[in-house]
Simulated scan of single mutants.
Amino acid sequence: MSRRTGAAAALAAVLAGGPLAAHPHVFADAQTELLLDDQRRLTGVRLHLVFDEIYTAYMAEALELDADKDGVWTDEEQIFAAEQNLNGLDMWNWYVHVRPAGGGGKLALKPAEEAHAMQIGDRFALSYVAPLAEPAALEGEGVELRIYDPYFYASIKLLDAEDGATLEPEAVEGCLLTRAPAHVDRALQKRLLEFAAEETPEIEGVEEPGFVFADRIGLSCG
């Protein structure tokens, strides 16, 4: 039943013997930039993630980072960490889920690019761009974006206010960026806690548990 590969498999391995056993068991703060072209179309999403200290420590141990034990990852180690944490995230849509605001399925993405990893204190930071397979027109209702792990292994929280979601370029005439907070489903949270770390949550009536906890970012250009 496992869907993990690459970094997700490494995550499962390091947590298997750790103190965390329920969903979620990884936490990350996030910032996102919605990328527009000169025709006011959405071309992709840049995502910045800062993971919690516990995941950082387990991940660094599993990937054997900081070989010289000086507390600082080399450039090569940072590149390796970025590659390993992206490997396999295509199965989870790179945590980036874009849909037409009027309804419909997810817009297809191309493989993530421009990956970069770094240390922020005791936390691992990862950024990358998830490009759309085809630019999305934003007239009418536009699109909606949610950042989440479908199976809620990771709880991803957008930073508050304007810092959580921005446009690039910053000011595009006629474009409106909105944000609606998620409605936290306490019953679903309680149900997820019953799943062990190695299990994939399957809950009747809920296609992707992570969706329930994700803020909605809306973007339209009149």
Rank of each mutant, 00 (worst) to 15 (best):
A60D: 10
L138G: 05
E83L: 12
L167T: 09
L63F: 01
G164Q: 02
A117N: 03
P100K: 02
G71D: 04
A154D: 00
N87S: 12
D70N: 11
E83Y: 11
Q78T: 04
E168P: 13
K106S: 15
H116C: 12
A137K: 13
G88Q: 03
T43Y: 08
L47C: 04
E144V: 15
E139D: 15
L109W: 00
R99M: 09
D70K: 00
R46F: 05
D90P: 11
K69Y: 10
A136Q: 01
I120N: 04
E170D: 12
E173F: 10
D52C: 03
L167I: 09
T43N: 08
E76S: 10
A125F: 06
I147V: 07
A130Q: 03
W73S: 06
G103K: 06
T56H: 03
G88W: 07
S155P: 10
L86A: 06
G105I: 05
E76Y: 06
A130W: 00
I147Q: 05
L159I: 01
L145Q: 01
L47I: 07
D90N: 14
M118Q: 13
I147N: 02
E61N: 13
N93Y: 11
E170H: 12
G174F: 06
A57E: 10
K69A: 15
T43A: 06
H48A: 12
H116K: 15
E144K: 04
G174A: 07
E134Q: 09
A112M: 01
F51P: 03
T43S: 05
D75V: 11
D149Q: 07
F152T: 01
E77K: 04
A62C: 13
P150H: 04
K69M: 12
E77R: 09
Q84S: 14
E61F: 12
T56L: 02
P131H: 03
L47N: 03
S155M: 12
E170Q: 15
L63R: 09
D66R: 09
Q84Y: 14
P150D: 07
E168S: 15
P111W: 08
F152C: 02
Q84E: 14
L86D: 11
W92Q: 13
E168W: 14
E64F: 00
E61C: 13
Q78P: 08
G44E: 01
N85W: 02
G142L: 06
G71P: 08
G103M: 11
F80V: 12
D75G: 09
L47H: 00
A125V: 00
R123Y: 02
T74M: 06
A154H: 01
D163N: 11
R46H: 09
E113L: 14
E170S: 11
E139R: 14
G174H: 07
S155K: 14
L138F: 01
L126Y: 00
L126M: 07
D122A: 04
D160A: 13
E141I: 00
M59E: 10
R123V: 06
M118P: 00
A60K: 14
A108S: 03
L158E: 11
E134N: 11
H97C: 04
